[in-house]
């Protein structure tokens, strides 16, 4: 565990998060959400820190909760988190071509979820509850309805231009 000394995790930040929840283990999920807000994923050292400093928890237990819920990521996520809905409605209305367009655009290999440079990350989710707008994508909480492969490409181009990488 020597890598911890050089890690980018600031334990003081983590501790402030724990303090805001009074070190109460009932708020573990909320704590993890806050940590993920800061780092865009859950660094192992952060989970260990929580496990060691919150009464009644251990690193293994925190890890168990973090890996149980799909909302938590153990890999760094992109600045823009793209969620493609593949619920039944979106699937039949063509979510797969949208997904493939994103993969091509971002040069994502099989199994890779975050693009080179860390600007975008891609996640397939089950029904977002907006079937009337199918197929749906969500980028950082903004909903994009009735997507096509062309439409999503345009959106990604715009975002890339804003970030100055296109």
């Amino acid at each position: 565990m020597t890598e911890i000394a050089t890690s980018k995790v600031n334990f003081r930040d983590i501790d402030n998060i724990l303090k805001s929840f009074d070190y109460n283990k009932s708020y573990l999920i909320a704590m993890l959400q806050k940590v993920q807000e800061v780092y865009r994923y859950l660094p192992e050292e952060a989970m260990t820190y929580i496990g060691e400093h919150v009464d009644g928890l251990s690193p293994a237990t925190v890890y168990g909760v973090a890996t149980f819920y799909a909302q938590f990521s153990l890999e760094p996520k992109g600045k823009y988190e793209i969620k493609v809905c593949d619920g039944t409605a979106c699937h039949v209305r063509g979510s797969m071509p949208v997904l493939n367009a994103i993969r091509n655009k971002l040069n994502l290999k099989e199994g890779q979820t975050t693009c080179e440079g860390g600007l975008f990350s891609l996640e397939i989710v089950s029904c977002l509850g907006a079937c009337g707008l199918a197929p749906v994508c969500v980028i950082n909480d903004k909903v994009y309805p009735q997507m096509t492969s062309d439409a999503i490409s345009t959106i990604l181009d715009t975002l890339m231009k804003e970030e100055g990488v296109a």
């Binding site: 890890y63 168990g64 890996t67 149980f68």
Partner: peptide
């Protein structure tokens, strides 16, 4: 009280 072992994943 150690919880060295835990369930992971789902």
């Amino acid at each position: 009280g150690l919880q060295v072992l835990g369930f992971a994943n789902r």
